[in-house]
């Protein structure tokens, strides 16, 4: 397998990392993802790492790079599903993933992405109608 699949869901991109990532796979993911953000005008990226039983500094750096690249392309990144043993190990290793939003699960991650990207939506709704039900639309 040479690529980690990227799924599009509306204005978001979903990535579920299900294999132990070797270095080329990780770098390929950065390339594929930035390409797709631009291609689909994506506003958010959700990365599910619940299948990863190890996150070392290389993978941590890759996640940080993805978050930074996405931000430059005006997309938010949320990393979800980290295993507790991985969280303990990462912090002891000295890697607290600065600059990366995390959430416990996919549901909470999607909530964060919707909130983060809703501001521009509200502006559009406000312009188009006076008493549009913002909450309903969101």
């Amino acid at each position: 397998m040479d690529h980690i699949p990227i799924l599009r869901m509306g204005e978001f991109l979903l990535i579920t990392v299900q294999v132990d990532m070797h270095d080329r796979l990780a770098i390929g993911l950065q390339d594929d993802l930035t390409e797709q953000i631009v291609r689909f005008n994506s506003r958010g990226v959700l990365i599910d790492i619940s299948s990863l039983d190890v996150v070392d500094s290389f993978i941590g750096r890759m996640l940080g790079n993805i978050a930074a690249m996405s931000r430059v392309l005006d997309a938010q990144t949320v990393v979800v599903g980290m295993q507790p043993a991985v969280a303990i190990t990462l912090v002891e290793l000295g890697l607290s993933l600065p600059g990366i939003r995390t959430a416990l699960n996919v549901e909470r991650g999607m909530e964060i992405l919707r909130e983060e990207t809703s501001h521009s939506l509200i502006e559009i709704i406000d312009e188009s109608s006076e008493d549009a039900g913002v909450e309903e639309v969101l």
Partner: peptide
């Protein structure tokens, strides 16, 4: 947790 630390 120790497994994860060792593998990492």
């Amino acid at each position: 947790v120790d497994q994860t630390k060792l593998v990492t």
